[in-house]
Design a protein around this nucleic acid. Structure first.
Lengths: 256, 256
DNA sequence: CGCAATATTGACCACTCTCAATGAGGGTGG
DNA sequence: CCACCCTCATTGAGAGTGGTCAATATTGCG
């Protein structure tokens, strides 16, 4: 993929930079038409951290905002811890996805993020990014878009939680993963879940048991094959239908 | 209210500008330390539309993004229409609040917004705002913050829908309204709901009947007084407790 | 190898939805 | 100005989805 620029370079440090550039390419730069020189300035502020392991935190609720994070490989969950030890899972982040945008408001994270499996994560010091975006209008634009997209995604999720049944939620969840894997070049039909049933349930507003039962039911209905964390989607189309709750539309509100 | 500055001026156009400046003051500028000259440039791109009436749309799902909107007086709901005529209410917007941020991603609104009662709305052409933010770093920063805040709010809502009971949702909803009225200088204890029970239920992921029953129960328990759209909160503290679900914390996920 | 965490399955129950009927406002037209 | 209608809100009765509790695999890590 984005290797062309780096073909002549050899050093590992350079590779790291390039690796990160791939990262930033997909999630920050690709649709944005940066000049090579601007791209370079962006690349220079992106840092690659050492590999992180299951359970490591990128940040915790209340931490001062230092960096935004991009998943390079692996996966991350973000969640809002509650006083009593419970938590609400807010999202799962796959390669190429950006984490930490909700911390800009008051320069303080208001959720936690921890990695679900051994992962490589790029860090972007937000202050630098902000400065840079001041002098690169198309970067600024891209930042607006990324923030806006996060809002749209959350709104989708609101609809899912507000209106959809357990079955619809799990189907939508699996399809979302599928689409995101596909976009990054992985198989959309065959993948591993890095999160537990508990975390899936928490994310979808369901009990673990419900998630488990749905998996078995989906399997019985030949929608998918599941063994522990290994998922194979057998019938995307039928899953689509399931996720879209064709039935039940009493939510029509009479237009005034 | 903010008439002082305009006292000597006579023209209605000037009044409009001042009115809008109040608007932008509270929601865009206040916490942001703009120079007077910059403030002026911002003010010049903000337009005040004629008063809108119940049922008027600010924009519809799919419209090209032209403007962001700030509620000056009145209230607005934003909602995601579904194919079959149903909808998911995404939010209610009170004076001082900004609408349309989820449209930046692809320059196209992906929800609709319509006013709930006669309202005055300021419009900010997004292109102009974006240009301006390029040359005023603190405006850019404020934009980032506003976008980020929207994300945080949506995440709160996700937790509410994912974890909380009907009772907790309605309590939280009322407290949210209360706090927002208070911030704008209205009574936090005594206000009118501009949205129907149906819309409240839709927003909170509940059936109308459930909302209605909760209102009567809350009233029986002397938490509030409700008559149609008129709400008087009698016991904020107890409402707070209700909204915070102290019980039931099996969502603890064993830390790894 | 063994304990602890995770997942599955079953039985039961409750919260909230659905369906249905009634009541209360608000607007319109006679 | 009142009658009528339409929407909105309230209330009741019944049903169902999904949660809770509990017992039993299964896995994975120390």
């Amino acid at each position: 993929m984005g290797k062309k620029l780096a073909d002549r370079k050899v050093l590992s440090f350079e590779n790291i930079k390039i690796a990160c550039k791939n990262c930033s390419l997909v999630s920050l730069c690709l649709p944005m038409g940066l000049e090579p020189e601007e791209m370079d300035r962006l690349d220079r502020i992106i840092k690659r951290s050492r590999p992180l392991h299951r359970g490591d935190h990128l940040f915790r609720d209340g931490d001062a905002l230092q960096c935004l994070y991009i998943v390079k490989t692996g996966s991350v969950k973000s969640y809002a811890p509650s006083e009593e030890g419970g938590e609400q899972v807010l999202g799962f982040h796959l390669p190429g996805e950006l984490i930490g945008l909700d911390a800009i408001e008051n320069s303080r994270h208001n959720c936690s993020a921890k990695v679900l499996e051994t992962s490589a994560i790029c860090e972007i010091p937000f202050t630098n990014l902000e400065e840079l975006s001041t002098s690169i209008p198309s970067l600024q634009h891209q930042m607006y878009r990324l923030l806006s997209r996060e809002i749209s995604q959350d709104e989708n999720m609101l609809t899912l939680l507000g209106k959809n049944s357990a079955e619809e939620r799990l189907a939508a969840f699996l399809l979302s993963l599928s689409a995101r894997f596909k976009r990054r070049g992985f198989s959309p039909y065959d993948f591993y879940l890095s999160m537990s049933r508990h975390e899936i349930g928490n994310y979808l507003g369901l009990a673990v048991e419900t998630v488990s039962r749905l998996f078995t039911r989906f399997q019985e209905e030949r929608l998918l094959e599941v063994e522990r964390k290994h998922i194979q989607l057998l019938d995307l189309e039928r899953l689509e239908n399931l996720s879209k709750r064709s039935h039940n539309d009493k939510d029509r509100i009479h237009s005034t």
